[in-house]
Simulated assay, not measured.
Amino acid sequence: MSARHLLTGAGSGIGRLLAERLAARGDELVLVARSAERAADLRAAVPTAEVLVADLADPASVEGLAGSLPDSLDSVVHAAGVVELGEVGELTAGAWQDTLAVNLVAPAVLTRIALPALRSARGTAVFVNSGSGLRANPHWAAYSASKHGLRALADALRAEEQERGVRVSSIYPGRVATAMQEEVHRQEGRDYDPGAWIDAGTVVDAILHVLDLPGDATLTDLTLRPR
């Protein structure tokens, strides 16, 4: 019997590659797209997947997925994220709200509505965090705050759900060669060399390892750094 996964962030980068790898091995996928246009793109890229539409920046939109989720999920993988750089003295309230909504509130809401299905399958919640979830650097306050919060969410969830059989893992990649990284370099005003950073496939390998871990252990935290 194939496993079933709920995945955000499959529009590009780590999430897209993970969706393709899971589909290629015959797993069932439920993907979340932020718009009907992105949903059409995902259906073309991963034809075997079920695609749901929800704007992760809008908690009510995420709540609206509750009636569309399957009864059993082997995993929920939170791979979506946004980043806006800026000094604390420059970041607007909108920048803070958008970053926290997508990077922290959406995973919290989606996890809550997916928990019955995760509990049913004794599944795994995977939070694709960041090195910024372990430390905060200049210009990264909003993003780091959202990722520090995501770490707290995962830690609390793990303690709460351990006796119900749900495993919870946080993965902390350093800079990964994705479209988001290219955008970060643009915001930093630096030239972008994808060869200098972690390949997205390496992070996907780590996520698959977490998903495929035997049931006798939980990999709670995994940090990846560019070589």
Rank of each mutant, 00 (worst) to 15 (best):
T178M: 07
R122E: 14
S120W: 00
P138S: 15
L150A: 14
G131W: 01
H185C: 09
V128R: 03
E188N: 03
M180Y: 01
T124M: 03
R135C: 03
R190D: 11
H139K: 12
H148V: 06
L115N: 11
R119G: 03
G131E: 14
L150N: 02
V168A: 09
R158D: 06
F127D: 00
Q181C: 03
W140L: 09
F127C: 01
I113R: 04
S130I: 07
N137K: 15
A159H: 08
G149K: 11
R186V: 03
E183A: 14
A121D: 07
R175C: 01
Q162L: 12
P138A: 15
D193C: 00
I171R: 00
L118A: 13
L153I: 13
W140S: 08
L118E: 07
V168D: 06
T178L: 09
I171A: 02
D191F: 01
I171M: 03
Q187P: 04
S130L: 10
T111Y: 03
G174R: 10
R190N: 05
A142P: 04
R122T: 11
R112W: 11
L157E: 02
L153Y: 07
K147G: 04
S146T: 07
R158G: 03
R190G: 01
T111S: 15
W140M: 13
E188I: 00
G123C: 07
R164V: 05
A108I: 06
E188H: 01
D155W: 09
A152L: 12
G149L: 13
R151L: 13
A114C: 14
E161F: 03
R112M: 07
G165K: 10
V168S: 06
A117K: 11
S169G: 05
V126H: 02
R167T: 06
P107R: 08
F127P: 00
H148W: 15
R151F: 00
T111P: 02
G131A: 15
V166F: 09
V109W: 05
R175G: 14
S144E: 04
R122M: 10
E163R: 15
D155R: 13
E183K: 13
V184A: 11
A179P: 02
L157A: 11
T178Y: 02
S132I: 00
V109H: 10
L104Q: 01
